[in-house]
Design a protein around this nucleic acid. Structure first.
Lengths: 149, 149
DNA sequence: GCGATTCGTCAACTCAGTTGACAAATATAT
DNA sequence: ATATATTTGTCAACTGAGTTGACGAATCGC
């Protein structure tokens, strides 16, 4: 009981150093042609939802619209995405990965996947499933906590 | 197999939004008299290792010495810790929580513990133990990855 | 038609954390 | 014992993630 709670506390505490280490590892990762974390998120979002609008990316990534807009401009300038006018709304756009952008996000994912594959060997599918379940539940839990005024 | 890897990938991807949500939730948390994340880490470190030196906190928290030094000055100015000369080394100091600092970190921990306690009800001790195990293993794994040049 | 919400854009800001540089102190090797 | 490398504290500038404020144009609900 108390022990479980301590473990949970410690695991949650580890989130920040973990993220720092992930970021550092990814930055040393092969490809990643100067793609920042935010840009990477946008590319992955557009890979999952081609033709998404800025507001859609906001809700999907849980980021503010101004921040998303800034990153969209960056990756557009870098030629990783392109935009067409949103037929449903004037002065609004739909975004898609260019072939270059597609290549880059694919390479990044492949690199990360191979790292995770070597990690995952030490754990059973059940353990990984449990990790996944608790991690997503935690994310939702704290999202709700943060929202209620 | 492939499915497990996808789950792991997705869980790792969730780390960043999770941390954002945790931070937001904690900032809305009751007490927390303007204590920043970095300050919080130092207070917790000194709670675990009273009388630690700055370099010890660095290795413990995996943070650069200059950053730790800056935070130490902040919390010192706020009266949450005090320092005495390090007997083993000139121009160096050992740090300890003041009663005020102790109270604050205790209150913060209690607040967070109560939130986590309500979350943990939905999971078995085994699940929480597994989450803990995988989370710490991931942290070490990426720390090693980041280190090797 | 009118007020409220939505969206895009520009700008300033906070916070976490890193990096560089320099001087004093210590450890080490010769 | 002296030259050299490492450690520590301090000051400063910087990057990167993400938020907030403000404003005008567009859209929605009534």
């Amino acid at each position: 009981m108390g022990h479980s709670l301590d473990q949970l506390y410690q695991a949650v505490q580890a989130t920040r150093p973990l993220l720092r280490n992930i970021t550092a590892a990814v930055e040393r990762g092969s490809n990643r042609e100067g793609v920042t974390v935010g840009q990477r998120a946008i590319l992955e979002g557009l890979s999952l939802f081609p033709g998404a609008t800025a507001p859609q990316l906001c809700t999907e990534l849980q980021l503010k619209r101004q921040y998303v807009a800034r990153i969209l401009q960056e990756v557009m300038k870098a030629g990783l995405i392109d935009s067409r006018a949103n037929p449903k709304r004037a002065r609004s756009y739909c975004y898609r990965l260019t072939p270059t952008g597609q290549d880059i996000i694919t390479a990044i994912r492949a690199d990360e996947m191979s790292k995770l594959a070597s990690f995952s060997k030490d754990f059973s599918p059940e353990e990984l499933a449990t990790y996944h379940k608790v991690q997503l539940a935690l994310t939702r839990f704290f999202a709700d906590l943060a929202e209620e005024v």
